[in-house]
Simulated assay, not measured.
Amino acid sequence: MAAATTDRNFCGICRKAKGISKCEGCSKIFCYNHFVDHRQELNQQLDEVEVTRDIFQQTLSEHASELKYHSLEQQINDWERDSIEKIWQTADEGRKLLLKYTAKSITDIEITLNQLTEQLKQSRQANDFVETDLCQWKEQLIQLTDELNKPSKITIRQDSKALVNKIYVAISTGKCC
């Protein structure tokens, strides 16, 4: 019967005609000793896959528990910091300009008030004033008060162009294979 044995009954390792087991995964035939070796090799490979899986699972757990350290989230944090900095800087520039103009405006109001005070003193001393003078002085005080409380030359406007560009999170839904 040995002459009737085909290549399919030979062990894939030692080529002896004692092939008794076929591996369903690789379709090779092995003798008993080599089949045990083959199974041990497969078990070692499975162990390696499990170790790799365990390492990946640990990495995944770390990422899940520390999402704030993700590089994409860092990009959002950087955008936020830069945007806030631009806003603070723009607001600070506006405050400085407002303070500068307000100081000049107050100085101008003080000069006008001093002139009015001088007119009032002179009119009182000379006892030379009429009703129209009183109306004019009252109107001047109202205008100075209005200018102090709501400066007519100062307004706050917003530019139509965005100071900060909005960011978006784009998620691709492309599926592979």
Rank of each mutant, 00 (worst) to 15 (best):
V49F: 13
L144R: 03
T145R: 14
R15Q: 12
G25W: 10
K138R: 09
C177S: 12
E24I: 03
S172K: 08
A3R: 03
K121R: 08
F10A: 02
E147R: 02
S160C: 11
R95L: 08
E93F: 14
S105H: 06
A2P: 00
G12P: 00
L72E: 10
Q40T: 10
R15Y: 03
D47S: 12
K175H: 12
Q74S: 12
V36Q: 15
L134W: 04
F35C: 05
D47A: 10
E139K: 12
F56K: 11
E50D: 13
A4N: 01
E80P: 03
C26H: 04
G174E: 13
K166M: 03
K100W: 06
Q40C: 07
H38V: 03
L67F: 08
S83N: 01
I29F: 05
L141W: 10
K68T: 13
I13W: 00
T112V: 10
F10L: 02
T117I: 05
A126T: 00
Q140I: 04
R8Q: 05
E66Y: 15
E24L: 05
E24M: 07
H34C: 07
F35N: 01
I109Q: 03
D47T: 10
N114H: 01
S152V: 05
N9G: 07
Q119A: 05
Q115W: 15
D7E: 09
K96G: 10
I156K: 11
E80H: 13
A170L: 03
T5N: 08
L72C: 05
N9C: 02
E50T: 14
N127W: 02
S123P: 01
H63E: 14
K138N: 14
Q75S: 06
I142N: 15
C23Y: 01
I87W: 02
R124V: 00
V51G: 05
T132I: 13
T59G: 15
G94P: 00
L141P: 02
E147H: 01
I167K: 03
Q158I: 08
